[in-house]
């Protein structure tokens, strides 16, 4: 072997050592069973592994990690019992719904990879608001206020948790496939990112928003339409439309002068646009999804043990 050959072989060796990159496996988490039998959380951790980690490649984090949240907020963890209830409800009212109505693979491919539970709300004392959930980069959903979970109150469950989950998941979906640009034009000029919290439900509805927060910016408007439509009963949805048809009442109880906006028509127009986008972009029939959610809401006690 001459000098040239040796040199080239050495060089190739060096190059090889640099080019042997790790290939992505099927999971970003270690799905091996490392749970310690006899640990205080063994039973629950085993259930989480079987319910979330193995099938969905999802890390359900109920032990609070402050580094996994916004350190500017003062927060507390979720209680163990509330975390157990929440994990069961999230599976029943979210993951199993999509698995049944859309496809078993849908959330495996498009669902979040981390769900992080926080016990308290994330208060913003300056604006007087509180954060109920966040979705980060299509990967992580954080749910706040979990210590207030009351499985017997479906309306509160929807308001504080499941509407939030569908809201955050809709964000994940539109971060993957954009919603129509035209949606943002419907209420253009009516969004108020800093003052939305001072609007009443009535005021928001007359402007064509399903909630005050929907009036903060158009991407929130888009996901609020989806989330509210999914979790609200027919009566509750009709109430929103009825509110949108009446003169608005502001926070002082005063009637707002008619500005010619047909809030009801706008909400329905937005809903149709969201339905079409879900169907065309994701092959999701929102009405089927909604029917399944509402059916399951009546049977919540069956899943809690």
């Amino acid at each position: 072997m001459n000098k040239l050959t040796i040199s080239i072989l050495l060089s190739l060796l060096l190059l090889l050592s640099c080019s042997q990159e790790e290939e992505f496996g099927p999971s970003i988490f270690d799905v091996e069973d490392h749970l310690v039998e006899g640990s205080a959380s063994y039973e629950f951790d085993t259930w989480l592994r079987q319910a979330y980690l193995v099938p969905y490649n999802l890390d359900f984090r109920y032990r609070m990690e402050d580094v996994g949240s916004d350190m500017d907020y003062n927060l507390v963890p979720t209680s163990f019992n509330k975390a157990r209830q929440m994990a069961q409800l999230v599976k029943y009212l979210w993951f199993d719904v999509y698995g049944t109505v859309v496809s078993p693979e849908f959330l495996k491919e498009n669902g979040p990879r981390i769900i992080h539970l926080i016990g308290s709300p994330a208060y913003n004392p300056i604006s007087g608001t509180m954060l109920l959930g966040t979705a980060e980069g299509g990967l992580k959903v954080t749910l706040f206020r979990c210590n207030e979970l009351d499985p017997t109150d479906v309306d509160l469950l929807n308001e504080y948790y499941f509407k939030t989950m569908h809201h955050e998941f809709a964000h994940i979906l539109h971060q993957k496939r954009n919603y129509p640009v035209e949606f943002g034009l419907i209420s253009q000029g009516k969004y108020n990112p800093l003052g939305w919290q001072y609007k009443t439900d009535s005021e928001a509805a007359t402007l064509g928003f399903v909630s005050p927060y929907a009036g903060s910016q158009n991407r929130e408007d888009f996901v609020e339409i989806i989330a509210n439509y999914l979790v609200k009963s027919d009566t509750q949805w009709s109430d929103i439309l009825a509110l949108a048809s009446q003169p608005g009442i502001d926070m002082y109880g005063d009637t707002i002068p008619d500005d010619g906006i047909n809030g009801r028509a706008i909400i329905l127009q937005k809903l149709e646009m969201a339905k079409k986008w879900l169907k065309e972009s994701w092959e999701i029939e929102i009405d089927s999804l909604r029917a399944e959610i509402i059916r399951r809401q009546l049977n919540i006690n069956e899943v809690l043990n």
């Binding site: 109920y62 032990r63 609070m64 990690e65 907020y73 003062n74 927060l75 507390v76 963890p77 979720t78 209680s79 163990f80 509330k82 975390a83 016990g119 308290s120 709300p121 994330a122 208060y123 913003n124 004392p125 509180m130 210590n147």
Partner: peptide, 25 residues
Amino acid sequence: NTFSKILHVFSNPENPDGYGLEGDY
């Protein structure tokens, strides 16, 4: 890292909202 009313009462961000007793857990 899960809630205890004995300890986390010092960190619960209520009264006043957003701050609470500003304690560590």
